[in-house]
Design a protein around this nucleic acid. Structure first.
Length: 281
DNA sequence: GACAATGTTACAGT
DNA sequence: CACTGTAACATTGT
């Protein structure tokens, strides 16, 4: 599951359910042939190591970094889960795409469901989390208390020639934003997704920073976006998809007050961008 | 059958 | 080096 609000919703669900439990057994039917997936339990050799390290360990805490879920154990190891496109974690709950099962103490279980099998589950050292190859390239957390307008502007300005939509989705510039939320942020502030960073005015950075925080927070408040297949650990859908202004509204009327525009779709750097033909400039 | 899909990464080319 | 396009990962849903 995809972007920051969906991952955050999942993490909050895990914090209510799995803390203090012990991992008793693990099952998977994944078996990748993708040579790039070295530290992934879909790799049979890694799975054996993973199992050895994780069995009989207790879950101390769960946190989020960008779109990654971090499950901290009592042996200085952290299970890192990245859901990619279609993954989700389910507590005491299964659906037809379950590929990994963590059997937990007190007859509980955590299932990893992933229709497209792109997801990644790996293990890193808790005390050197920042040096992990999976996390070290990531930019700042947009909802962090210490993140501000100035830091936001400086981060984006590392890509002066980049298109705003592409840069917002670049995890090394700012963490957690993907295709849905970038479309919604740009619709809100009336900026064309292909606007070059160098052509953004200071006042626009300010508005964008505010909109970005508000929209990501709104995504969390609505329990994530279930336009596609996201569900939380209890198997429940989120509701952000009911409030889209741009994402997947191709051909529909723009919802901005007094705007007569329609929503267009265009591939920008390999991803579908949805935007109003009139008010996004 | 064709096409698109919330993500990431490698690679080739400009 | 910076950036872009494409493919790949594997599968479902429209």
């Amino acid at each position: 599951m995809p972007e920051l609000p969906e991952v955050e919703t999942t993490v909050r669900g895990l914090q209510k359910t799995i803390l203090g439990l012990t991992i008793k057994e693990i099952w998977t039917d994944l078996n990748t042939k993708d040579k790039r997936q070295i530290g992934n339990i879909a790799n049979p050799r890694f799975f054996l190591y993973f199992k050895k390290e994780v069995l009989n360990k207790k879950i101390l805490s769960v946190e989020r970094r960008a779109k990654n879920i971090l499950i901290n154990l009592n042996n200085n190891k952290t299970i890192l889960v990245h859901m990619k496109m279609t993954g989700h974690l389910l507590f005491n709950n299964k659906d037809k795409f379950v590929h990994v099962l963590f059997y937990l103490s007190k007859n509980n279980f955590l299932a990893f469901s992933d229709a497209r099998k792109f997801g990644k589950i790996t293990l890193i050292n808790t005390n050197t989390i920042h040096d992990s190859t999976h996390l070290k390239h990531l930019g700042p957390e947009p909802l962090d208390k210490n993140f501000n307008e100035d830091k936001f502007k400086k981060a984006l300005e590392k890509k002066p020639k980049g298109k705003i939509k592409t840069v917002l989705m670049d995890q090394s510039i700012i963490a957690g934003i993907g295709n849905i939320y970038s479309d919604e942020i740009l619709w809100r502030i009336g900026m064309h997704p292909e606007r070059k960073i160098s052509k953004i005015k200071p006042s626009e950075f300010k508005t964008m920073f505010k909109a970005l925080r508000e929209i990501l927070s709104k995504g969390i408040d609505f329990g994530g976006d279930s336009m596609s297949d996201y569900i939380n650990v209890f198997g429940e859908k989120g509701e952000f998809q009911l409030h889209h202004k741009a994402y997947r509204r191709t051909g529909e009327k723009c919802k901005k007050k007094n705007c007569k525009g329609i929503i267009l779709r265009k591939i920008i750097n390999g991803r579908s961008a949805h935007f109003c033909n009139i008010h996004q400039k």
